[in-house]
Structure formats: C-alpha cells, structure tokens
Nucleic acid binder design. Structure first.
Lengths: 187, 187
DNA sequence: AATATACTATACAGTTCTGTATATTATATT
DNA sequence: AATATAATATACAGAACTGTATAGTATATT
C-alpha cells in the first residue's frame, strides 16, 4: 500500500525511458521522486533490482492495456488479430508514449548473460507468444510464422518511433500487417 | 596512415557492441587496444567524438558491403530489391555479426537533442532512402511506402537477433519482404 | 649530431556513481 | 503515554569515469 514505493517506480520508469537507464543515477531518481536513497534501497535492494521491477511493471501495464482493448472491442476471435495494429497505433501515437522498455534495455545491456538482457528477451518472446495465441484463435495455419512476422513489424515500428517521434512508421506497419494477415488466412 | 588510430577505432567498435557504449570506459578501450589515453585523446578529442566516428565507420562499412554485394550479383535493377534480404540474412547470420550500431546507440541516447541520437536517426533515414532508391530503380509505384515497410522489417529482425542470437527471425523477415515486394510490384 | 614526431607511463584533478552508516523526526499502533 | 514503523537528512567509503599534466622513450628526418 506504500505510495512512495510506487512513486519511485514511476519516476524511474520515466527517467529510464527519457534519459536512458545507465545515464540515470539513483541520486537523480530519488531527487525527482522527492525521497531519499535510504527509502529507495529499502524497497529495491539494488539498482538492478529496481530496473528489473520497472521492466516487469511496464510490460504488464502494456499487455493489460492491449488485452483489455482487444477483448472489449473485438467480437469474433478472428477480429482480434486484425485489430491488433489499430491499438498498437493508438499506443504508439499517444503523447505519453516513450518507447518500449525491453527494446531499449536489451540495447543498453547487450550481454546475453546479463539478467536485464535476459528479462528483455523473455518479454519479447512472451509478446510474440501473445500474438501467436491470437493467430491460433483466428484459426490461422502458420500461426507461429505470422506471429514472428508481426512482432518484427511491431519492434521495427517502435524502434523507428523511438528514433524519431512522429515518424509515421506505424501507418505503414499497419498496412504491411494487413497484407501479411490476409496472406496467412488464405493458406 | 596511423594504424594505431584504426586499432582504437576497431577496438571501440567491438567493445561498444559487446558491452554497450555507456558501459565501456576509455580506460578499457586503451587497455584492450594496447595503447594509452594520451594517444586516444590525440586522435579523438572526446569520448563523444570517438563514438560518432565509430558509428560513422560502422555504417559506411555496412553500406559499402551491401552495395557491393548487390551490384555484383544482380543483373536487372528489379533483382536488386528482391535480393536485398538475401544479403541482409547473410550479414545477420555471419558469426561476426554483433548488431546494428545506430539501433543500439539510439536506445542508449534516447534524447533527440543528443548528437549521437541525431546521427543514429540520420543513419536510419539514409538506409531507408537507399532501399527507396532500389525500389525506384525497380519501377515500383509506391517506392517510399515499400522502403519504409522493408526498413521496419529490417530493424525488427536486427533487434530480434540482437536480443537472441540465432533467433531465426531473419528467415521470416525474408518471407514477409517477398510478399510486400510482390504486392508493391503488382500495383 | 640535433631535432621533430609518435607514443608511453604515470599520476592526478574533479566528478559521478552505487551502496551504507548514523542519527533524527514524523506518524501510527497498542 | 509508550513504542513500533516509516521516512528523512547527511555524510561518506570506495570505485569508476572523463580528461589533462608532466616526464620520459623510441624512431625517423634533416
């Protein structure tokens, strides 16, 4: 129920996204969150622990948001995968959008042995499996293949948007996704 | 003619890719390169200057390699764009592959005001324009749109491969590219 | 032989970083 | 009223970081 813990988590999430993880010191985090290091280290034993929690929460928030959007708006199971990129567009073009946590984290921690890298990799895999579930529900034959292709488009579009806000890349990713989905349905 | 300058540049390129840019100190670079900081700072006035040169050289090397592959193997201009992802696959699956410099750099320096971020963004744009040139030579109507889509697939596939080596993502990116190119040709 | 050039060795200034130790204050709970 | 809990304030250890100052060496060039 500690609101201070959440405040630290939210502040770190924002600073990591806007300044980078390695470029954000714990001193900055507590200063912006309006608390002290003692409190930060009480809740998160190490900076690495904080980073891992930030990544986990960000991913959960995104997945929950997306899943709610899909289940509330799609009637038939086949509609879900067709609407996927509509909601991704909504997410990417939102003024609050700051990028995808696991994409940036994996770049900052390129070593595959690193726990942060491993979590990023796991989150990427889980998101692909989520798309795969949608493809299976839509009775698509090569669900694995389509899911991988769509996840590539997704990560590419997010990457493009991270590099240059308002790039409009998501519009074309949407078109490409439509084409790939239609082609996969026909098979 | 200075071979020591090149040695520093090559060492930094490797360390930045394998350990991350912010996680690699100049002390580490000179130790691995077998020289001293005085020499490094003689050739590269700041660490930022070194980073910018590393990014520039990496991108030039990649673009030259790709362009040579395409001009040596493709007879008709329309073949070039069709073979693009064959050579990208060759590049990505090579044992020397360590990722795409500008993708990682833009994640480590997310601020759009930062010179390193700006160079990354410029390199991404230039690569897309290169694909666009190929699409135009192949007389594709919506060359801009196709180029953007292919660059998204490219960046997504590289991102996937950076996260997990041997992910096989490039195989499916190739299939998706084929589909998108065929669809763009028909229009 | 004298001199310029390239490089090395080393020490250090000044900052920033993670993480901890210590002491104090405010707020609930019993 | 007494006591546990939560948070603050502050200082600091110890390491790592960028960048520079100083002095010395090795190799060409004139």
């Amino acid at each position: 129920m500690s609101t201070l813990r959440d405040k630290i988590l939210d502040t770190a999430t924002d600073l990591f996204q806007t300044r980078g993880i390695n470029s954000t010191g714990v001193d900055t985090i507590v200063a912006v969150a309006g608390t002290t290091k003692m409190t930060l280290y009480k809740y998160f034993h190490t900076k690495e622990g904080l980073i891992l929690e930030v990544l986990n929460k960000s991913q959960q928030d995104f997945q929950n948001w997306l899943d709610n959007k899909l289940t509330n708006n799609s009637k038939a199971p086949a509609d879900k995968i067709k609407q996927l990129f509509d909601f991704i567009e909504e997410w990417v073009t939102s003024p609050n959008f700051l990028g995808m946590g696991f994409i940036k984290a994996s770049a900052e921690f390129p070593n595959e042995e690193n726990p942060i890298h491993q979590l990023s990799s796991k989150q990427s895999r889980e998101f692909r499996l989520y798309i795969c579930k949608l493809a299976n529900e839509a009775k698509i034959k090569d669900a694995d293949g389509l899911a991988l292709q769509l996840s590539l488009l997704f990560e590419g579009a997010v990457q493009a948007e991270q590099m240059k806000r308002g790039s409009g890349a998501i519009k074309y990713a949407k078109k490409a996704a439509k084409l790939l989905i239609d082609s996969a349905i026909k098979q």
